[in-house]
Design a protein around this nucleic acid. Structure first.
Lengths: 340, 340
DNA sequence: TTGTAAGCGTTATCAG
DNA sequence: CTGATAACGCTTACAA
């Protein structure tokens, strides 16, 4: 096992000083043509690569960006990671992934872990628990220490930073409008509790769409799910009692549970009931019937977030503090779970 | 924006030397009780956290492990990441995730990027292209430089290192045996090309099961998919012509495409044809009919891999070189795509 | 009990 | 044109 080659060793081997080697390798014209060539040849031959850690220490930047998400098995988040990865790698950055498991404590821990030199900035979607507690001191602290933060999807107004979100309200409106357009009269909403911002916003879109179309709001047709664990049961009960002809679910899982429940009630999708989900996952595409959904464009969100973060990182810190919120458009993807 | 607190600043503030601060914070008994308390109090008050980069440089270890996978949108890999994350975090390690996109070049690039000080060791599943080219110089190099490597799932005999795999052969046998047990006579296999090791092994299991049950092998009932892109078409054609009563697919996607094709041919699953997939994803669970699968236990594999890697990292490097291969058992999960 | 100095691998500044 | 030196933040012999 040979240890990694360092400048020092090259210097000793070639009998020059360390700084000469360093300069030669960076093509400084302070160094004579001949020595420069000699050094570069040697370095190439033995495959010298500068040590990132030393560079990080020197430059006070790590060229890595940390991404903290609530869970990775959720397909949406993995598409976001893909997007982040893509632009990060293009621009010479590494990506550190941490999972908060939706736990506030784990989120704080992860952030502290990464903040001590492991990363130059953060891309995050907040843990459910964090939004519940409304405790954002860890975010504030990172920002105070000059670490740029980009929030996506599960964002929060209290924090001033760059953000990438989709227009949940408009996305939801599009979905409900579509249901209305194809003739649905009793449209149910399956949402999450309100402190999950997406649940709140999508509910808002649902209500606005109804209102704009002059349909009276019936709170009875709204189901709010607290725990994913027993969501199937709750959805079954909900579907059984309401005589719906349209369902808008704020995520893929709820939509599929709804379809199952509808079918178990002896009705057909989409002939008797049309169903629209949110989030464009594998499941939606390949389920039978395939799901009409509001697509979140996760990869695109990841790309936007990474671009913003890197831009901020590479802008001289002294420039004007100005935060942007990029709203990526949610698009309706029509498939087979809605009548045409 | 206040910069992060360093030992140097604490030292200046408290008018002691840097090393005194360092020692005090590490509870060295070289330091007097009173100064020690004073320093620790100050550090706590201002929330001092040592800089990981400096520590990495000093200790020549980063406490992060790099994981390189072919793609993240594949559910199996995300469960592995979850498993790695879990034990890594428990033991104070960070996880760096890179994607090779199944490209050899990107895999090499990512490895070089991480090898220069960003990570202490690797957990990898090889890119398809890498297995095709059978070019493993980047893996050899990492090992030569003393960076432990744990390969999982897509592993390769030519490299001596720790490995975590499932018993693909036995898993496949279990599946085919199950099909035979419920009375299937013409069992089709939908596999990948042989240089993807899992394709080869699962095919082997398929053949062994048939043989052990005295069923003649009909190569005509085996479909090998090269590109995922047009797999649906190929599967449709395959299903249409063979009059199968059982199908074993080496992954979830193929299984679902098969079910679709079967249904489009006017047959029912599982009444007319039973289908078994491989990999236990969201899709299998929630598809209708839900899929009987051979579960790969991705999270468990991730945990095993991370444990092995960390163990190796923390063992003094001088200890005996000995590589283990952990074989995690693949289990049949019976659901609704097979007759009972 | 406390402080000094060297070193981890680099780069930048300044002398020679 | 080349080299010594300091610095990034930290630990650890070794002096004082």
């Amino acid at each position: 096992m040979k240890p990694k080659l360092t400048l020092k060793q090259i210097a000793k081997e070639l009998d020059v000083s360390i700084s000469t080697v360093s300069k030669a390798l960076r093509d400084s014209n302070e160094i004579g043509e001949d020595t420069r060539q000699k050094i570069k040849a040697f370095a190439k031959l033995y495959n010298y690569k500068p040590n990132n850690i030393a560079l990080s220490l020197k430059n006070r930047k790590t060229k890595t960006i940390g991404i903290i998400i609530p869970e990775i098995v959720h397909h949406f988040f993995t598409t976001v990671i893909s997007g982040v990865e893509k632009v990060a790698n293009e621009r010479g950055y590494n990506v550190l992934v941490c999972l908060s498991d939706n736990s506030f404590d784990k989120e704080v821990l992860n952030m502290e872990m990464l903040a001590n030199g492991s990363t130059d900035g953060f891309i995050m979607s907040l843990a459910k628990e964090t939004m519940q507690k409304q405790d954002y001191h860890h975010l504030m602290e990172a920002i105070n220490h000059g670490m740029p933060l980009v929030l996506f999807d599960r964002v929060v107004d209290e924090i001033s930073c760059d953000k990438v979100i989709i227009d949940d309200v408009i996305g939801a409106k599009k979905a409900v409008q579509h249901l209305l357009d194809i003739g649905c009269k009793r449209i149910g909403l399956i949402s999450t509790v309100d402190y999950v911002s997406v649940g709140k916003l999508r509910t808002k879109g649902y209500k606005e769409a109804l209102q704009e179309n002059g349909v009276a709001l019936d709170e009875d047709l709204i189901l709010k799910i607290e725990e994913i664990e027993n969501s199937e049961r709750e959805i079954e009960d909900f579907i059984a009692g309401k005589k719906l002809d349209g369902v808008f679910a704020v995520n893929e899982h709820f939509a599929i549970s709804a379809i199952k429940a509808i079918q178990e009630n002896g009705l057909r999708v989409p002939e008797d009931v049309s169903v629209i989900g949110f989030t464009d996952g594998e499941l939606s595409k390949r389920f039978i019937p395939s799901l009409t959904t509001v697509s979140q464009h996760g990869e695109r969100m990841g790309e936007e977030a990474a671009t913003m973060l890197i831009e901020k990182l590479e802008r001289s810190a002294t420039e004007d503090e100005h935060y942007k919120t990029i709203i990526v458009e949610a698009g309706l993807v029509t498939r087979n779970s809605t009548k045409s």
